[in-house]
Design a protein around this nucleic acid. Structure first.
Lengths: 204, 204
DNA sequence: GCATGAAAATGAACGTTGTTCAATAATAAA
DNA sequence: TTTATTATTGAACAACGTTCATTTTCATGC
C-alpha cells in the first residue's frame, strides 16, 4: 500500500485548509487560532506545521480558494452579448454580492497582513490577474485606441474604484449605507464610470 | 502646587501618543508594542494603562491626529474659485499625496481592527464626517436636484472610489503602479467621475 | 513476516505578546 | 510633620504562534 503517507498528509492539508476557511468566515481572520484549527481537525498542535509553514501561508491558501470563487462568480455574472457598460455593471454588482455573501473571507483578502518586509508570493499575485483581465476586455472596446499597458492600468483603477466603495461600506469602521442603497450606489458608480470613460476618451 | 498630578498625567498621555504615532509611522501599526512605547517615553509598562485603557484606544487617538492632518491637507488643497470638477481633482490628488507621504499612519487608519464585536466610538465616526462634507459641497453644484441624503450617500461613494484606487496601489498586496502613473490615474479617475456625474445627472 | 531506517505525529515547552494588580512611591490635605 | 489619596511600578499572568525531542507510524529489504 504505497503512497499512504502522501495520501494522509494531503488529506490533513485539505482538512486544515477547510477548517481555517470556516473559522475565518465565522470569526474573521483575526479569530483564527492555531489551537482551534488543531482541535477541529483532530490533530496535534504541531501537526499543522507539517502541512503549512505557518499560519500566514495557510491564510494565503485560504485566499487562493476565495479568489477562485470570486473569479467563478464574476465570470458567471456577465451575459454573452453584454455591452461594455452592461459588463461593468454586472461585474461590479457581482463583486458586491460576493463580498456581502462571504463577508469575512472577502475581508480577510484585504485585512490580513504578512509580517513586515515579507512580500506575497508570486503565485498569489498571479491569481489576481483575472480581475484585471475581466475588466480590460470590455474596457478595450470602450477605449479603442489604448495600448494593452494603458488598458491594464486603467482596468486596475476601475477595479480599485468599485472595490473601494464596497470596502468602506462593508467595514464596520465607517458609518454604513443600508444594503439596498449600497447596491444602487455600486450600480450608479458603474454607470458613472462607463459614462465618464466615454466622455474622457480622447483625454487619455 | 495643586494640579501637579493632572499636569504630569496629561504630559505622559501626550508623550505616549506621540511615541505611538512615531512607531506606527516607522514600523506600521502591527509593529506597535506596549513595551517599546514604555521604554521610549521612559515609564513603566503599567503606566501606559493609566492614560489609555488599552492599545486599541491609544491607536484610535493616533487615528484622530491623522484624520485632523488629512482634513487640513484636503482643505488647503482646493483654490477659492475652483469649479466642482477642479475641486474633485484637487481633493483626490491631495488625498493621494497624504497617503504617499504618511503611508503607515494612513494605512493604520484602515488596517487596524477593533476586537470582534467592538464598534468604533462615536467621536471617531464623527471625525470622519468632514470627508463627506468636503465632497458633498461641490457635488451639490454638479447634482442640483438632489436632496441632502442622496448627496451624502453619493459623496461617500465618490470617496470610496478614490480611496479604493489609492488603497490597492499603496498596499504591497497587489502588483503596484509606479507613483507617477498613480498620480495620473487618480487625476483621470477624478475626471471620469466628474464627467460621469454630469452625464448621468438625470438618471439619479 | 520481521527487522530496520525514515518520516510523520505528538504535546510539552519556549519566547513574545497585551494586560493586571499587589506593593511601593509620590502627592495633596490636615 | 503626619496622614490619606492617588499614581507608578514591574513582576506575574494568560493567550498567542512556533519549535523540537520523543514517540509512533509507515515503507523497505531480507
Amino acid at each position: 500500500m504505497a503512497g499512504k503517507r502522501e495520501t494522509k498528509k494531503e488529506e490533513l492539508r485539505e482538512r486544515v485548509l477547510k477548517a481555517a476557511s470556516e473559522i475565518i468566515e465565522a470569526h474573521g481572520v483575526s479569530g483564527l487560532r492555531a489551537r482551534d484549527i488543531a482541535e477541529r481537525v483532530g490533530c496535534a498542535l504541531g501537526g499543522l506545521y507539517t502541512v503549512f509553514a505557518d499560519l500566514d501561508e495557510l491564510i494565503l491558501h485560504v485566499h487562493s480558494g476565495t479568489l477562485k470563487r470570486i473569479e467563478e462568480q464574476l465570470r458567471g455574472s456577465v451575459p454573452e452579448a453584454a455591452t461594455p457598460r452592461e459588463t461593468f455593471r454586472h461585474l461590479a454588482l457581482a463583486y458586491l454580492a460576493f463580498a456581502q455573501d462571504n463577508r469575512n473571507l472577502w475581508k480577510a483578502l484585504f485585512e490580513h497582513r504578512l509580517p513586515e518586509g515579507a512580500a506575497p508570493p508570486d503565485w498569489h499575485l498571479a491569481q489576481q490577474a483575472f480581475l484585471i483581465q475581466l475588466i480590460a476586455a470590455p474596457l478595450s472596446i470602450a477605449m479603442p485606441g489604448a495600448n494593452p499597458d494603458a488598458l491594464a492600468i486603467r482596468a486596475r483603477t476601475l477595479f480599485g474604484a468599485v472595490h473601494g466603495v464596497v470596502s468602506i461600506s462593508l467595514e464596520d469602521r465607517f458609518t454604513g449605507i443600508t444594503p439596498g442603497h449600497l447596491e444602487d450606489e455600486v450600480a450608479a458608480l458603474a454607470d458613472i464610470l462607463a459614462e465618464g470613460i466615454a466622455a474622457t476618451r480622447d483625454a487619455v
